[in-house]
Design a protein around this nucleic acid. Structure first.
Lengths: 165, 165
DNA sequence: ATTGAAATATGTTCGTA
DNA sequence: TACGAACATATTTCAAT
């Protein structure tokens, strides 16, 4: 009986984070522009800046907000080629080791353990096809345990967004 | 001779965006926390706040900075399942139409035209496996032109980052 | 490109409802 | 929760180098 109580409390903490309409409006604005002034949001919604401030503190403490980022335009910096690479590892036990190596490669932006054919799926960014080829042949294929890779070059990214509240 | 001049100017505008070490330090800080006060960065680097401000203006005008975002923790909001879905379209001509439909599905976070087997690769986020199944069967498979899909569920994302400067 | 200082704008705290 | 007012910080501008 005590255990079921504790479990129900855990559920409350983990699942019942109340995000009302005002929270959503605040988050929607800030997800689009992390530097948008609180007062602008406040005026739009029709509550005080102090209220927004309180809600943001609540959302941060609840862990709803993970942080904020400046987004840099990789194309302007000369990175024109994005690709996904499915990686086959010959032994599952080598996975953590392989991931450790992948973390050392700055061009690797994402790395997922996945269901399906591959052990790992990564997203990478390269200056051009030449850079991509070097990366695959010299760095990724060189990782111990990597037996084969399948590369999918992103010819054009049509959607890039966060979850919609 | 005039044309070569114009071309060299275009190259200057598009490729020779000078990002020096100070720019990189500023961007590195703000990519980690978009709300980090300029003065803190200024003190760390050892130049004035006004100088940082000027450089940020320059970087914005050059298009290096695409914006800033608040990052929300999707897991806390109850979205525990991320997946990649490779989509086969029966006719390439249907691609733009299919992408238009995908844009209407809020769970679709990314969408890429790709080389390789599929026409399109998307990244999606779902509450749970049930939600994922509904999304695939009722919404994605229902799009006109979609002949087949291959789904890769992300069991664990080990790397999530931006380009390293 | 950079600075310091002034002017403006924004964020934060707090007593109260 | 929300408010407004007081307070503390941050940003932007600007003349000068």
């Amino acid at each position: 009986m005590e255990i079921t109580f504790i479990l129900s409390q855990m559920k409350l903490n983990h699942l019942q984070i109340e995000i009302d309409g005002i929270d959503k409006q605040i988050l929607r604005d800030l997800m689009e522009d992390a530097r948008k002034p609180i007062l602008q949001i406040a005026n739009k919604i029709g509550i005080s800046g102090a209220a927004i401030h309180q809600r943001l503190r609540k959302l941060e403490q609840a862990g709803v907000i993970s942080g904020s980022k400046f987004v840099v335009n990789t194309k302007v910096l000369g990175y024109s080629t994005m690709a996904f690479v499915g990686i086959y590892l010959d032994k599952a036990a080598r996975n953590p080791e392989a991931v450790r190596e992948l973390k050392k490669i700055p061009e690797v932006l994402e790395c997922h353990y996945t269901t399906g054919n591959w052990s790992i799926l990564i997203k990478i960014i390269c200056r051009d096809n030449e850079h991509l080829m070097q990366l695959l042949n010299k760095k990724i294929q060189a990782i111990d345990g990597v037996s084969r890779t399948e590369t999918f070059i992103s010819l054009d990214q049509q959607i890039e967004r966060q979850i919609q509240l």
